[in-house]
Write a protein that binds this DNA or RNA. Structure first.
Lengths: 220, 220
DNA sequence: CTATTGTTGGACCAGGTGGTCCACATATCT
DNA sequence: AGATATGTGGACCACCTGGTCCAACAATAG
């Protein structure tokens, strides 16, 4: 983002642009998203866009960073190190629940998730989006590592596979929520958080079963 | 595919084209895949491609249909109705294992999975690819419905969500296998089938727990 | 009122996309 | 040999992409 030019723009125009961009990015993914379509929807001309942002990547990254910052502020921060064995899952679910409460007026938090999660699979190691996805990924990793430390997250899978699966599941759940968003009442959405969370738990929670076959292939 | 022209082409050229196309489609997804790159890699000119296929979609669909046909022939067919409660998971795993054994010389079976699975999320309701993805999806649905009939697959989720999650997990697992393909020995790959399969089982298997909260939202 | 700065519309660009066309080459058949 | 189908190289097309540029407009400072 170029300086703080964008901050000085009318708040209406700001949110209009950002909303349209979020829609497009969430729906089509970073690569396939079209700047021209965003501009058209937002009623802004290209020269303006490039007056406020350096390029497509900058728009995308600024958008996500703003969203995350806003979310974190509303949620009240989050440090995986604070999680303990007996509250690991419930704390996590609580955060997600609060995040969803915030975005109940508008689906943008879910869109945010979709935008970021979709970066996996985009082949280009596009510098900045790559780093953003890497950050999201290592955040997930940190949480899961903490869970393993506490003995509540399974340790029998290759780490990278477990993370891939977690994020992929996240993308699926996120996409489902987004496509069914308008069919649901706010309280239904909240109920779905519980449902969705149980899926993650099933996938990632440590069980008492042997799992010997899997243990042989822990690394890489 | 235009007539049977393509069948009359040198087998070498056939497989070269198909291989390159599979690589490109698996790596970048249908939309992002570039015909020009495929042509370049395969050393074929565009007019030839369009002599054998109607368009990009036709190439893609023909490729997947051929692959599926070949796979089914090698595997010896597969009818979900034959599955029974006591062999549901083991039969399924057996099929996957055999499929992987076939593709151990070359990753194309895994690539095939990736190609199809990746169609989810491609926004265009592109006629033919849409139908192909729809077919894959309803195949998954059929299997899962059979599992529910037998009481071994959970029934507490919205059907569409469960399918989304299953396919998404499939994509993740598939992608992981593909990126780690060369680091593994054939027998390691087979071992990973077991690991991966346990993931699906965890996610989809019916358990004895109550799950009341989830049951309230079964539909849509 | 002028000069400087901030802001925008829109023409324009190179490069890539899927797709078309046609002239030429190569086989096949009579 | 000639005529006829089968196949291919490559120029070309319209379209769309992210991105540049500049002239004109608005606002503010001196």
């Amino acid at each position: 983002m170029v300086r703080n030019r964008f901050d000085n723009l009318d708040e209406d125009k700001q949110t209009r642009l950002l909303d349209c961009a979020a829609d497009e990015f969430a729906e089509r993914g970073y690569d396939a998203a079209s700047l021209n379509k965003i501009l058209e929807k937002a009623g802004m001309s290209k020269s303006s866009l490039y007056y406020y942002f350096e390029d497509k990547t900058d728009l995308f990254v600024s958008l996500t960073e703003r969203s995350i910052a806003f979310l974190m502020r509303e949620i009240g921060g989050f440090d995986p190190a604070d999680l303990e064995a007996d509250n690991f899952w419930s704390e996590l679910e609580g955060r997600v629940r609060r995040a969803l409460e915030i975005s109940n007026r508008n689906a943008w938090y879910v869109k945010l998730g979709r935008m970021v999660l979709r970066l996996r699979g985009q082949p280009k190691g596009q510098d900045k989006t790559g780093r953003l996805y890497g950050a999201a990924r290592s955040f997930v990793e940190t949480v899961l590592l903490r869970g393993q430390e506490l003995g509540v997250v399974r340790t029998d899978l290759p780490q990278s596979l477990m993370i891939d699966c977690a994020m992929s599941l996240g993308e699926a759940v996120d996409g489902w929520m987004l496509t069914h968003w308008d069919e649901m009442e706010p309280e239904e959405r909240l109920a779905m958080v519980t449902v969705n969370f149980s899926l993650f738990r099933r996938l990632l929670e440590k069980t008492d079963e042997p799992q010997t076959a899997a243990d042989a292939l822990k690394n890489s």
